[in-house]
């Protein structure tokens, strides 16, 4: 597994506040990486340091194998939290301009722009000025400007804010596709459902400090116990076996249980099929929301 981004001992202090404590991160290539944290946790500061918008006080940042921001500018895309774009330019012109600035040939830039314009259903707006678009449409344009040059990595600060649910889904689909094509996607958000459905790995930061990080599965495994839900028909006793199940909550047709230590869900399923007819068997992931809130609370911060 190669690394797209490596952050080592990076910190930033503003006059009174330590915005980011020395922070280490590692983002695997061709994955979707979520940077989570409550408001003011230091997500945007971290992202801005990665983008060389502000200089860290200490530490090194290696993005796409380079520590020199000038070497990698054309290979990354950036969607700042502070959205904004040349309002007087027309949609297509703007997209072509940004592609060309990242060294995409003009003809190719035009082709890319038209494809993305179709994808986002902006065709009838392509020759309109940005200032005449609605806020949501301007957001789409800005998202396209971030990915139009097929960067190796994109860094998206709160990419879903400002989109309606339909477009949130569209953006999600596109991000998954782009990852499929090998793009590394780093995004910050505090929308937990999004992270659970999208991210391969996460890092949770609070008050400028990393609280936990790693692949989503591992984080969940370490931080929460899985619950098992079963819908059944018949007379069931398997969940009363204390060697299998630590605790349960049965309603006669539906039972939610927490497996005993060292027991795989497979064993419980086997025990269950011997006794009853099963219409649903589900492993309940501990929700990231739960983990997030619990962890932040443990740290003494407010979620």
């Amino acid at each position: 597994m190669t690394e797209a981004l490596r952050i080592e001992g990076v910190s930033k202090r503003y006059a009174e506040v330590q915005a980011v404590h020395p922070l280490d991160l590692s983002v695997p290539s061709a994955s979707i990486y979520g940077l989570l944290g409550p408001n003011g946790a230091g997500k945007t500061t971290t992202i801005r340091m990665v983008m060389d918008i502000i200089k860290p006080d200490t530490g090194t940042i290696t993005l796409l194998g380079s520590q020199d921001p000038d070497q990698r500018r054309d290979r990354i895309g950036y969607l700042p939290e502070e959205r904004g774009i040349y309002r007087k330019m027309k949609v297509r012109d703007l997209l072509v301009y940004f592609a060309r600035l990242r060294r995409v040939a003009t003809a190719e830039a035009r082709a890319h722009a038209d494809r993305w314009i179709d994808r986002f259903d902006l065709a009838s707006w392509a020759d309109q000025k940005i200032e005449s678009l609605s806020k949501g449409m301007a957001q789409k344009v800005q998202f396209i400007a971030t990915v139009i040059h097929r960067p190796e990595a994109v860094i998206l600060d709160e990419p879903f804010s400002g989109f309606d649910p339909v477009n949130v889904d569209l953006v999600k689909d596109i991000l998954l596709e782009l990852r499929q094509e090998g793009m590394t996607i780093i995004l910050s958000t505090h929308q937990m459902e999004t992270v659970e459905r999208l991210c391969d790995s996460i890092c949770l930061i609070n008050k400028g400090q990393k609280v936990l990080d790693g692949p989503l599965e591992r984080v969940k495994a370490e931080r929460g116990t899985k619950a098992i839900q079963v819908e059944y028909q018949g007379t069931a006793t398997f969940f009363r076996d204390r060697s299998l199940v630590e605790s349960f909550d049965d309603t006669g047709r539906f039972v939610e249980m927490w497996p005993a230590a060292g027991v795989a869900p497979q064993q419980i399923l086997e025990a269950a099929v011997r006794e009853v007819k099963i219409s649903r068997f589900q492993l309940m992931e501990p929700s990231l929301h739960r983990i997030f809130v619990d962890t932040v609370r443990q740290q003494g911060g407010e979620a």
Binding site: R48, M51, I53, R73, P80, E82, I85, F98, L101, R102
Partner: peptide, 17 residues
């Protein structure tokens, strides 16, 4: 000034020197 008022500065600075 427009780079600031239109908030395009951050995007531009990450794109060009």
């Amino acid at each position: 000034l427009e780079e600031k008022t239109q908030r395009s500065a951050e995007l531009m600075v990450s794109t060009v020197r």
